[in-house]
Write a protein that binds this DNA or RNA. Sequence first.
DNA 1: CCATATATGTAGTGTTCACTACAAATGTGG
DNA 2: CCACATTTGTAGTGAACACTACATATATGG
Lengths: 200, 200
Amino acid sequence: MGMGRPREFDADVALDQAMEVFWRHGYEGATIAQLTEAMGINPPSLYACFGNKEGLLKAALDRYTKLRGAWMDEVVAAPTARDVAERMLMGIAEKQTDPANPPGCLLVQGGIACGTGSENVPFELAARRAQNEDQLRDRFVRAKAEGDLTTSSDPAALARYVSAVSVGMGVMASSGSDREALRQVASVAVQAVEAQSERR
Amino acid sequence: MGMGRPREFDADVALDQAMEVFWRHGYEGATIAQLTEAMGINPPSLYACFGNKEGLLKAALDRYTKLRGAWMDEVVAAPTARDVAERMLMGIAEKQTDPANPPGCLLVQGGIACGTGSENVPFELAARRAQNEDQLRDRFVRAKAEGDLTTSSDPAALARYVSAVSVGMGVMASSGSDREALRQVASVAVQAVEAQSERR
DNA sequence: CCATATATGTAGTGTTCACTACAAATGTGG
DNA sequence: CCACATTTGTAGTGAACACTACATATATGG
């Protein structure tokens, strides 16, 4: 009975472009006109495919976290808690100052505070950041069980800490800090994890 | 020849209300209607007094940093670099979860990413955060000169680090983390400064 | 080749935004 | 008490916003 006219654009490619716009301007700062132009489509195509602006953001976030998921797996594969923290924070110093992307982190740049009608956007982003934190916490729980972290250490607190530093680095990057400045922050931050590690 | 009708509202009181709105909704998320209602005035009064929306933000930021200046002075008056960091980060844990204010920090909530026409707002906020960082750096320079921090320590990097953690805690607070979670982060973070301190 | 189903481009829709024209009100200096 | 300077409240202004109606185009299934 006919399957309808096929879509002329690649949704993932379009999402990559939308991601960049949200990343650079934030959810509220990004306009449909900017998004459609970057995506190379017209508004009706956007709404037919993603529902509305918030649906587009969620799809872009899904893609972002999916792309970063592989990297986070590498991070937690480091042999010790200290190395996990170092790999994570040094990697963030690189990624957040990579000229191929807007500076900072989409999960922060997307929106920390929003106006009426977008109140849940900041929570949506926070939920995605929490996923990373959970992954770190699980890794630190293991590190404690393995005797890598001291018995008095608190894996959840350590994960929260690394997550907080990551966010802070993201804000720094987006407001102009260069790679070396972020590396310095990462380097200092790792020492707190070291302080909770058993010396070998 | 007449000095004109006197203003009927107190600019500082009005700024306190505007500060709260910017703090809660961000620069772009805050509307003139919300601001004027909170300030108890009408739009023409706002524009006559502060120029435009961005002028109002800057005036609110001036007041914010002025109110916090006294506290920062207390922070850097702590006897050691470690105590400076602890006093700062633990104080932030309290302040950013104080129910008397919106959660988080105005210098972060105000706007991390903005749309066309407000591109300089994030930089304006970053400049204010940099002031705190400079004050910390100067204090750590002194700590190093006094032999409190090790000779291999980097005061600027330490200041950047404490500043980054502060920002990260602000984002955490605004997305729902409670006071205890922030205290845990602060507690871990201080250990990095401790690692750069001479034992006594 | 036709009926159907979905995508596309044009050209809007109503709403909300930051901002302001204007007239009335209210004070001060002479 | 009067001329003047400034503030205030009302009621808008044009522009930009997210979103959509509609006609046309393009594919598939029968």
